[in-house]
Design a binder for these strands. Structure first.
Lengths: 167, 167
DNA sequence: ATAAACTTTCATTTATTTTTGAAAGTTTAA
DNA sequence: TTAAACTTTCAAAAATAAATGAAAGTTTAT
């Protein structure tokens, strides 16, 4: 396989993966492109390589920066902006985990707490509802706490997890 | 909050969450509904409660069964089919993790292996590509293995993880 | 101040995903 | 068998999400 072909395949695959994870295809593709680029990339280059419009590039780069996994860079003497992706994978995973916890898990926990707190009257139906949502709340809370703890390690958290867990 | 309201809120929230995870809204809503139902639920009831068409209900129930997190049940003397969700949360999480590993991680690993195996010629660009995709392959492989190990525990894997990790 | 170089915004268009509903298929009982 | 009770399928319609591109906005150099 030639380099260009490999690069394209990687970008496409990463993009397809993104859309199964609630991230839009272009956003994931841009991220893939930046991750395998040795040098910072301009918006013009992103548009060119992925064949997308200026607006699309701009909006998705912004979204990636909001996630904290893509950075703007300025080159001295250059007017335009360049972009690089977080390339450290431990760091990348930690940022994604934290962001998703904040955006999705925390709000879900709030709702679970609310709905599991209704006073169940005598019906089996209501008792089961309260029981099940309470279990769900406990489970998700525990999982979120584990995630917190794991990501606190930052460097090499995955390796540390392997070591701890395989014992 | 009244029971009906709480139930509805739960179903809606779970549905919204689903769509951020690449699962369609209705599928997640059906799952939510079944999870908090004490008794097996007929397709008619699913249609009625979620206000969806017969075709939609049928297709999404099928998809949930393909994931192995919803089961068909037959009541003696009843012609129609009833459905229940996996209610054990450890088991549910394990099934989801395994299915996603199979559907998403494994194929991605295959591609990563492929693209990281090109012979990089002298350019910095190509060397960086091979280096980065190799790191990615190693990382994802390690993560997938940890997931495997964790889900082997099945019962109480989360609790066991907490215990192991907090030490 | 002015203009060139560049980025962002957002109404509109385009593409993708989901839903519908009626026809076809299946199972069971008589 | 036949027909009633139920489920599945799938082409078409509807809903949703993403992309475009031109105008508006911003920054920098002169």
């Amino acid at each position: 396989m030639k380099f260009k072909e490999a690069k394209n395949k990687f970008v496409q695959t990463w993009g397809a993966l993104g859309s199964q994870w609630g991230i839009n295809k272009t956003m994931a593709q841009i991220h893939a492109l930046l991750m395998v680029s040795a040098e910072p990339v301009s918006m013009e280059d992103v548009m060119e390589e992925l064949q997308i419009s200026r607006g699309n590039a701009s909006m998705n780069l912004r979204a990636l920066m909001d996630w904290g996994i893509v950075y703007k860079e300025y080159k001295t003497g250059e007017r335009r902006e360049f972009f690089t992706a977080e390339k450290d994978l431990d760091e990348l995973a930690v940022k994604i985990a934290r962001e998703r916890s904040k955006r999705e898990i925390k709000p879900a926990l709030k709702v679970l707490k609310e709905v599991s707190s209704i006073t169940a009257n005598q019906t089996e139906e209501e008792k089961h509802f309260v029981d099940q949502t309470t279990k769900l709340y406990d489970f998700v809370l525990k999982a979120d706490n584990v995630l917190d703890k794991i990501t606190e390690y930052k460097d090499n958290w995955l390796t540390k997890l392997v070591v701890k867990f395989m014992k």
